[in-house]
Design a protein around this nucleic acid. Structure first.
Lengths: 365, 365
DNA sequence: TTTACAAAGTCGTACGTACAAGAAAATCTT
DNA sequence: AAGATTTTCTTGTACGTACGACTTTGTAAA
């Protein structure tokens, strides 16, 4: 038996249960130190020790000459938790990331949480800086979009210290493999598969794919893209898989497309890593006098605002965006408020990307 | 003389001065309770009381069996200052707002501040909620984009309480007229003027303008638009000024454009409140078989990513976006760090929008 | 009835003792 | 010399007393 608990701790726990059970309602007066001492057969000093710790925690209020009182819940809450949640994303301003942040913000605000925002600009050093800044104040939880998830995790120590401090956090879009944390992401491999299957079904055989490979999302989309070719028995020209990273000049994929379109047996279809890439590729094709979708079909990814704004409304794959942000917030709040880490803690939620048919793909006869 | 200070308080102050003066350096061991007791002719209990309060404050660390130690400065500092700045915007995810936030975030991070984000969704009730949440924790400053600035300010009391608390804040894009606060904004009237002048110079005479009128930006752009017509002596058909608010269905301006394009003497040019509106209008025109810019020239506003992604690259007016966010952060930090409110405190910074010529405007012969 | 004062209750301060628990140094044993 | 044990130091827990400061309440005087 661990009956080694000090008496003042036992008393503290007893008083806590009184408060919790409502035996002592907020604002009511607690029996005097002497009464408690007699009741529990303790010395008044010991009772004082228990009281003073509870007062330090903000649960009791002692007034000289009057007595000791239970603080009102509202007052307690205030001093208790900051109820602030941090989000670390790669980019704040670009593309679909604002939508994710917005979804999370809306959910958090409605639940009375505040949102601390930081972005890494896809730079691992800045990621470290962000984490340090975030953790310098007590946080209730963190939502993180990993930076360059395909290139390892030099900030592992931060994540480990978060786990050891029992600070709830979860990841979106991708997660570092070394960590077992809940993660919300799009089924990227399935997305690449769906897109390629669709183009193949439309009769396309020479399909070029553009993939960003410094994060796992691009790698997984590429996997699905290749898988679709394999299962259809279509040989995949190595020239038709274009990979790039953000550190290189952004012009690279565009230049590559120029070469491909200028060649003799040019591709009839194109799958872009995301809409942000699909649009400039589309414009490049049109500049070269290649009509879209007449001579070149295009499928994008993420169903961003750009897909609709483009000259030819883009056929693309959905990304949950706001919903993902909202769900991330919901799950994090659940983790915070139930406190007890349940077994499904490291659960991964995979969103299935769906094809949105617009006007940028044509069926080959 | 108020020599009525309790002994343990006197001891506390003495120890504090020891720490401050360096007599007790961080990490060093404090004389044991018994030593102190003897030195000061106090009982050990009294010494313990002083120690335990200092421990509670985070200045000392007591280890059973080893002794009492002065905590390192770094550990103490942590609990010191929040250095957090809040931003309240109308929208997080849409359009140019993410760019503003990003600019501010980059600047703040590099200066060691954290960013608390909230959005109002252009709803004044949510604005109040945001302000309440923001102010529930000590903030160093606030950047606010007013919600529906043309429709009064029901949350005035919040702003007044901020001013009375000497909490620095500034506004971007627009400011509530009743408040005298620094404000960074685009010279919207000048923008409307520039756009209309440009179209007139290109030979257009029947120009339709679309303006969002629930915030002052739209109203001011409209002013400039009308001013250009007046100065050029061109009568402005009332039908050619279309106003709308976000609360109405977004379809309204599109429907209006349909009517105008179907009429006999349809406009030859169009000025849109911003690019986000210009793009759907452009697409609407093209759907109706009206070529852009051949039959209809279009000028947008804000030089957003949409302007380049559109089927026809949009001629538009610049908006500082990131730079505005960065500058807002810089100014706010200056206000915080110098503390003294200088005379140029309520200064307004006006950015001059510049015309970016792309392909959506044609010169009439 | 109102006012002034006293009494009794509360928590705050201050001293005392004793022993327990943990850590480190000194000592003893091997 | 190395390891085990004891001693001695530290802080932690627990009890006790006494008195001060403050508030409320009851009582007595005006």
């Amino acid at each position: 038996m661990s009956k080694r608990l000090p008496k003042y701790m036992i008393l503290k726990n007893e008083l806590l249960s009184w408060i919790e059970s409502g035996k002592l309602s907020p604002g009511s007066q607690v029996p005097s130190e002497n009464e408690i001492a007699e009741q529990f057969s303790l010395s008044r000093q010991t009772v004082r020790q228990a009281f003073s710790e509870l007062e330090k925690q903000g649960l009791l209020e002692r007034v000289q000459g009057k007595g000791t009182f239970v603080r009102h819940a509202a007052v307690r809450e205030e001093a208790a938790q900051p109820r602030t949640i941090g989000i670390v994303t790669t980019y704040i301003s670009d593309y679909i990331f604002p939508h994710i942040v917005r979804g999370a913000e809306a959910e958090l605000r409605s639940r009375g949480y505040r949102l601390l925002l930081a972005s890494t600009d896809n730079d691992k050093e800045k990621e470290m800086e962000c984490l340090r800044l975030m953790l310098s104040e007590p946080l209730s939880g963190l939502i993180i979009e990993p930076t360059k998830s395909a290139e390892g995790n030099p900030n592992l120590s931060f994540y480990l210290s978060m786990q050891s401090k029992n600070l709830p956090f979860l990841m979106i879009n991708e997660s570092y493999r070394e960590l077992e944390v809940p993660c919300l992401k799009v089924d990227d491999e399935r997305g690449g598969l769906t897109a390629a299957r669709y183009l193949i079904k439309q009769g396309h055989r020479r399909i070029v794919g553009f993939f960003k490979t410094d994060d796992l999302q691009g790698v997984n989309r590429l996997k699905g893209f290749m898988h679709a070719h394999r299962e259809a028995g279509i040989p995949l020209d190595p020239e038709h898989v274009v990979t790039y990273t953000t550190s290189q000049k952004d012009k690279l994929p565009v230049k590559k497309l120029r070469e491909l379109l200028a060649s003799t047996d040019r591709p009839t279809a194109l799958f872009a890593y995301n809409d942000a890439l699909a649009v400039p590729l589309l414009n490049t094709a049109r500049e070269m006098g290649v009509s879209v979708p007449g001579e070149l079909s295009i499928v994008g990814f993420d169903d961003s605002a750009l897909a609709l704004a483009a000259g030819v409304p883009l056929t693309t794959l959905t990304h949950p965006k706001e919903e993902m942000g909202r769900e991330a917030a919901r799950r994090l709040i659940a983790m915070i408020e139930q406190e007890e880490r349940s077994s499904d803690d490291t659960e991964e939620l995979l969103y299935l990307p769906e094809l949105v048919e617009r006007s940028s793909v044509v069926q080959l006869t």
